[in-house]
């Protein structure tokens, strides 16, 4: 943490909202995007990201400066998002997705819907949407590591610190998550299969 950040942190701890806003300026986009990929829509992501920064603000006094401020923020982000996903499950918001067991991981079965045909998926934007939708179908655990590693670009070490588990666990979880995502995408569009074998 640089001196500027330290000074802002001290001010923020004493209730200086403006100092706090300056402190978190650089994290807002990343936290929002992390939340967006975790919950899948902008409105919820915005709400959750705000919730993250409120929680961070409330617990500033308990923040130990030996740990990294960024790691701490992302850890709270992950927890807030996973809490939300759990709540949703309890409210059956995502009940359309039935969970099925694979050999060593869980994925969700995609329900039939009126999504674009493979021809339309050729469009690049559609492709991104397909990926985005596929990520939504992953289990929370897998989604977390995929979003952190493959979308946000965190290192294994960072992910391990954020989700509080050994690096080895991150590696194996990521491996399973990628395989699960591949399975979902394979079943989702023929085009992707075509792309796969090219």
């Amino acid at each position: 943490m640089c001196e500027d950040e330290k000074s802002l942190l001290e001010k923020a701890k004493n209730g200086d909202v403006f100092a706090y806003e300056s402190l978190i300026e650089g994290y807002q986009k990343k936290v929002f995007n992390l939340a967006l990929r975790m919950v899948g829509n902008r409105e919820d992501a915005s709400e959750l990201a705000q919730e993250v920064f409120i929680r961070v603000y409330k617990s500033l006094k308990g923040f130990k400066e030996q740990s990294q401020f960024s790691t701490w923020i992302y850890k709270i982000t992950t927890n807030v998002c996973l809490d939300e996903l759990r709540k949703r499950k309890n409210r059956n918001i995502t009940s359309l997705d039935e969970e099925i067991k694979l050999e060593d991981s869980e994925i969700k079965r995609q329900i039939e819907d009126d999504k674009p045909t493979p021809e339309m998926i050729v469009e690049k934007n559609e492709l991104k949407k397909v990926v985005s939708d596929a990520i939504k179908l992953l289990s929370d655990e897998h989604r977390t590591v995929i979003v952190m590693r493959d979308i946000q670009g965190f290192s294994y070490e960072e992910i391990a610190r954020i989700i509080n588990c050994p690096e080895g666990t991150v590696k194996s979880r990521l491996n399973r998550a990628r395989l699960a995502l591949k399975e979902i995408l394979k079943g989702k569009a023929e085009l992707l299969s075509y792309e796969f074998v090219k």
Partner: peptide, 28 residues
């Protein structure tokens, strides 16, 4: 696997909503 990772890596980073900062400011 490589193809999927490429797709994930290419997922664009989205801008925060316009009123995000203001809403957060009000809450704080």
């Amino acid at each position: 696997m490589m193809y999927i990772m490429k797709l994930c890596n290419e997922m664009p980073e989205e801008e925060i909503p316009q009123d995000f900062k203001l809403q957060l400011h009000n809450k704080l």
